[in-house]
Design a binder for these strands. Sequence first.
DNA 1: CACCTGCGGTAACGCGTGTAACCTTGGTAG
DNA 2: CTACCAAGGTTACACGCGTTACCGCAGGTG
Lengths: 335, 335
Amino acid sequence: MGEKPTAAAAVTSADVARLAGVSRATVSFVLNNTQEHRVSETTRARVLAAAEQLGYVPHAAARSLRAGRSNLVLIPASVSAAGSLVSAWVDDLESELERHGYVLVLHAGRFPDPVSSARAWAELRPAAVVALDGDSLSGQAVEVLSRAGVRGVLAFASREVPGAHTVDFDQSRIGALAVEHLVARGCRKVGVVMPQERGLGTFARPRLAGAEGVAARSTATVTPVDLSYTHESAAELAARWRELGLDGVFAYNDEYAALLLHALRNEGVSVPGDVAVVGCDDLVLSALQQPPLTSVRLDLPTPAQVADALHELVDRGARPEVRGMEPFLVHRQSS
Amino acid sequence: MGEKPTAAAAVTSADVARLAGVSRATVSFVLNNTQEHRVSETTRARVLAAAEQLGYVPHAAARSLRAGRSNLVLIPASVSAAGSLVSAWVDDLESELERHGYVLVLHAGRFPDPVSSARAWAELRPAAVVALDGDSLSGQAVEVLSRAGVRGVLAFASREVPGAHTVDFDQSRIGALAVEHLVARGCRKVGVVMPQERGLGTFARPRLAGAEGVAARSTATVTPVDLSYTHESAAELAARWRELGLDGVFAYNDEYAALLLHALRNEGVSVPGDVAVVGCDDLVLSALQQPPLTSVRLDLPTPAQVADALHELVDRGARPEVRGMEPFLVHRQSS
DNA sequence: CACCTGCGGTAACGCGTGTAACCTTGGTAG
DNA sequence: CTACCAAGGTTACACGCGTTACCGCAGGTG
């Protein structure tokens, strides 16, 4: 009686060595073609053949355990929290990092506080961590990562995060830019949509803060309004729109903006007549809305630049310059 | 002169042991509170204090190396390839897997063929692999994974993948359903949008095949039309719409459908008068289009069910039943 | 006094790698 | 003949961890 049907033990370099009739060291020399050590053509061929035949693939964990450093780059973010804009960016970053021999990995655990999150990430012992929502990264969390041997932490954040390499990425400027625009268009009572979906709060709160900062320097007021990404929630919000008395709204996102736009129309609220609407991300679909959506566009640093910087950071511990995010407004008919 | 400023060596359990004045074994017993071994309250406290003070976090790789099994579950997919529907699903799956002690990780490398892709995934030695695009998974690729000690491969695919646990997920049924509907609505010359974005081909091709299958059993014809997710591409396609002479189109996706919808309107092509349009995913925004978009909705197996099945697969090698995907049509005014 | 019986702790091994150090062999110069 | 060398191979160790076996010691029992 065998074990489980597919209990084929994992193939190790020792198996390859055995089959090729050489030592494990030789196998290692061949497969990594180490320059410091010569190995004859015939045995090299034998080893390669054996590896091929067994379908050997090295064990990354063991390798980096031995090497004392991993080639993992971790982006601690949930898949859905990234809009389509950021998703595409992350994809490109992955390709760029591959050029340098890194493996990019996406993983967010759900944890109450930054430190226990950091602890979970640290278990993977990545070479570097790229925090897109760097503002939710405490200095203490970075400390945890550092103590775990993470060589570089790149934080996209508005404020300097102690111990991390910070790239300017001030979410509050987005809210500020949107509300500045709305105020300039004559709005006096501006709403700011707070999405209720999990994971979005870390982006939404600073955007609200930026909006409030602008309002404080003008005669306008800012009111946060909760909105879930469902028809029901949007309809419910639109239904009490007149009593809210808002004449402008920054909708967090183009997607939330589009949702709100349609709910308002159903309610007979005219855009931009009764209320001006501004979104964010300048998605492809935004220009297609009725009316076309004014949006804050984010110019992200190029993935190639970030990948290079990351490599610098991990390899030489340098503190490379990375241009930050530069938001600007794309004006269309919704405002 | 010191090394790099932040060259703090990673904290290991040996450091904790040293500080607590006990052996490494004791540290391990305490931190994993092993039931087989008693340890006095006082030393337990000392160990915990030391671990806390040093900010110790275990090394997942070393742990699973020793244990002979990892707790990694790999989803080999690029972030952007997953639409918002799937993203949310993946997020939930992550939570469910966490309950079982697994760590879900997203990582796609860009490789030419399935086998070298599989090789890259296998390096991480995950406990399981969940292939959302299981149809691009060859039996040979599964073999590679299996040889690397991956305990379970869950493939969402239309056909049985040798060696993998297949969950029925027939993309071609989506295309078939859409075209069946279009034909029933009187369409004779049906277009099928082929998105040009990388990574989408594996989903688009079977959908086209399903569409063609339906057409073959009717008097209608199917024509693939290329479309990139940009205004320019859509406008260019819409411009030559009349010469294409299509009276129905399955647009792959609600997002591509919406893009096409607007381009067609700009060109003066009426929907559904001149051409009926069907999308897929039934996104929140789809009902809000002008006209509201008919869409194929996918009923995915619940994340909880998949997580349980995965655990079964990894832990007991069982072959649990997982209900497959069940697509159905949501009819609106665009067709 | 010899003997078992928990209790609380430690030494030591192995997981799969990469590499520094060493060993063997044949060829060649002194 | 001895000394040396380069080429091509192997042995041995460490990376951080979990676990098995063992050990000292106290207190009870025959």
